[in-house]
Structures are given as C-alpha cells and as structure tokens.
Design a protein around this nucleic acid. Structure first.
Length: 277
DNA sequence: TCTAACCTGATC
DNA sequence: GATCAGGTTAGA
C-alpha cells in the first residue's frame, strides 16, 4: 500500500502525536510482527520518543536511550494513536503503550509489515537502513543520470529497487514514467539525456504533489488521523487501463513489467526496440 | 533476473 | 472459484 508519500504522511501525523511521550511497554499480539533480528523490546521501557522520521519506506521512531523502532508498513500496515485502554482488534498486531494513556497501534491485515528495535548509536550499519539507496527527492540530477547510466536493467525495475533508490513504488513509478514519456521496460542506460532529466523532474513533481495531497488511497490506505489521501484523483496512468490517455486519447494498456502490474500509453510511451535473436 | 512466496480481503 | 492488490525477498 504505502510508498514514499504515504509513509511521509504517516510520519507527519504520528510525529506530533507521540513525540515526548514515555514508553510503558511494547505489547505484541502475535509472534510474526517482530523482525527476527530485532533487539528485545523490553529495553523500551521508560524511554522517551525524541524523533519520528522517514527513510525510504521505513518509519524510524527514535528514543532517548539510543534505540530506535523501525516500522515497515509493507502492503497494508497502518499506524494510529489510540487510547491505550481500547482492546486490539483482529488485525491489530502491536501497541506501543505510553504512560500518558495513549498507544501507537500497528494494524496490518495482510501481516507483511514488521517492527524492529535497533541500536541507534552507530550510523545505520547492521540495520536494514544501511542497504537503502538515496532518497528520490534528494538525489541530484547528476547522480540520477549516473545511476541510470550504470545498468541495462529495465527502468521500472531500477526505480523500484530500494537498494538503488529508496521510496519509489508501483504507483509513482507508473506516474513518473508516463509524464516523462518513457516506457517502463526501457533499458535504463538507453534513455536519452533529455528524457533522463524529464524523468528526474517528473519523479520529484509527482512525489511532492502526492505528499501535498496526503498520498493515494486506492483501496485501504488511511492516514493515522483516519482520512484517505487524495492523490488517487490526480493519477494519470496508474489504475487507468482501458481509459483514454490524458495526453493523446489512445487507450491506456496494462501489462506486467518487473513483475508488477504496469499501466502505460502505447503511443506516448513507445516500447523499446526488442533485441534481435 | 525472474518467480514464487508471504497473507487476507475484495472483486470478477 | 480464480484473480488481483500500494512491498520485499529467498531461491531457482
């Protein structure tokens, strides 16, 4: 479900709700929620929340005692501040309970999401954060050009690879590629210089606009305040298969690229030449 | 580099 | 009953 704009929206709403609060305990309902390399969660008792940040699609809740709780929402994860005395429902898998009567509740229908308590003293080494590529909103055009020039992988597969770029997901890839008129299967190192720049700009434009609109709610995404995002109404490509292209009017088509459902305009995003046998 | 797998629910 | 879903990853 959540890509960079949705995770950023979650962080912005959770931050004021829990910053400064002191942890009573982290209650886990079900063994699967905690990452197998997590530190023991009892170490959280008495620690104060000093920051809530996003890195790629990870949420990092930092504590006074040099620990941090990483949260990855995967497909259907959700966070919300609730009164600590409300009993957890079927899909509620963890409660970070504070001594002010509130709890940060982790809900996840598909159970893909994970929590991980890490040592926050040494940079990010030894944590999943160490393997992440640069932020799509921070990478320079020069570095983006270098990244694309370094591989013949399909551009969509590259944009989705969190080790290369951290935060892009299926929706915002399709949107950015449509705007830049790049076919999702194009070899990254064969995209022309003007189109590389167009793609870099489109990626930034789409992510910033989506953050402004509190993300996209296709099926189930709700912000911690319980509201859906609005950006789905602005989608030009994602979810618009069978509908006319907003640019040329031809029918948009859905295919599979990089193992993901992918919608593109067959006219505006001309497919790459196939290698001859 | 690609596929299957992880889960549950919604929709066809 | 089969298929699909905003993500990631182990294994072929």
């Amino acid at each position: 479900m959540p890509e960079l704009p949705e995770v950023e929206t979650v962080v912005r709403q959770v931050r004021p709700a829990i910053t400064g609060a002191v942890v009573q305990r982290l209650a886990l309902h079900g063994a699967h929620v905690l990452h197998h390399k997590s530190l023991p969660v009892r170490a959280l008792r008495g620690q104060k929340v000093c920051a809530v940040e996003r890195r790629g699609k990870f949420i990092r809740i930092r504590f006074s005692g040099n620990m941090a709780l990483l949260v990855h929402l995967r497909m259907t994860g959700h966070l919300a501040a609730v009164p600590a005395d409300t009993s957890p429902g079927k899909h509620d898998h963890a409660d970070l309970i504070f001594n002010n009567g509130m709890a940060l509740r982790f809900r996840d229908v598909r159970k893909f999401g994970r929590l991980m308590l890490i040592d926050d003293t040494q940079a990010d080494s030894q944590t999943p954060l160490a393997d992440l590529g640069p932020e799509p909103l921070e990478i320079s055009l020069e570095d983006f050009r270098r990244l694309l020039g370094s591989t013949s992988r399909g551009i969509k597969a590259l944009l989705l690879d969190q080790h290369k770029l951290a935060g892009m997901g299926n929706i915002y890839c399709d949107e950015a590629l449509f705007i830049a008129r790049v076919h999702p299967a194009t070899a990254a190192n064969r995209i022309s210089a003007p189109k590389v720049q167009a793609l870099w700009e489109a990626m930034r434009q789409v992510l910033l606009a989506a953050i402004e609109h509190k993300g996209s709610s296709i099926d189930s995404f709700l912000t911690p305040e319980g509201e859906p995002g609005n950006y789905q109404n602005a989608h030009l490509a994602y979810g618009r298969s069978g509908q006319p292209c907003p640019r040329c009017g031809r029918t948009m088509r859905k295919t599979t690229v990089a193992g993901r459902g992918t919608t593109a305009c067959p006219t505006c995003q001309r497919p790459p030449r196939r290698k001859s046998p």
